[in-house]
Amino acid sequence: MAYSMEADMEHDHHIDTSKPMEYSTEDGSLKIFGFWVFLGSDLVLFSCLFTMYILLFRNTAGSFTSQQLFDYPTFLSETFLLLTSSFTCGLATYSMRRGMKNATIAWLIVTVLLGLGFIGFEVSEFTKYVSMGATMHTSAFLSAFFTLVGTHGCHVSLGILWLTSIIIQVAMRGLNPVTTRKIFIAGLYWHFLDVAWIFIFTVVYFMGKVL
């Protein structure tokens, strides 16, 4: 019971070996819970951006519609890259739990590379739209589109920098209660980005093709 009164009385650096390493200190358990709180608030942030997009996407101001703009190969590539990266990130956490340092680092590197591939496709998609004259200023639809998908892209970019810094820390310091907690939290963040993307490809891209 990491949160109980008894735990508070104990020494700060008490390590409970019955738990996985990232949960083994009270500090680690509390930080993991704190990160769930952040994910809850991030979920509400995305819900507001989705609401804005859903209410505005028909307001194309006589310019590009979602039907004309989106193309299947681009957004399907983005979807499969991010989905696979979420899987490899899960394998990194799994390897970490088994104490396999090199496997953890390897899966994290694969995750970062897939994330970079995703960002590459997204940047080329945005550049293509802007070069066609479909910018954030063109219509309410495009303002909402770039805000929603761009916010997600910012999250992924930040995640890439975060995972890279964690890879360096694990390579230098190995798996200890601090680095495993960092891997676990960054893993939660990365999976959450895939949750957000699932709703983006459904609500933005697929619905944009149907309606």
Binding site: M1, W36, G40, L43, V44, S47
Partner: peptide, 20 residues
């Protein structure tokens, strides 16, 4: 590995998101 607060929290966040 202690009280399962995060599950309730995430369900509540989904409830807020759905309501919005």
């Amino acid at each position: 590995f202690g009280p399962n607060y995060q599950q309730f929290l995430i369900f509540f966040a989904f409830f807020i998101a759905f309501t919005v």
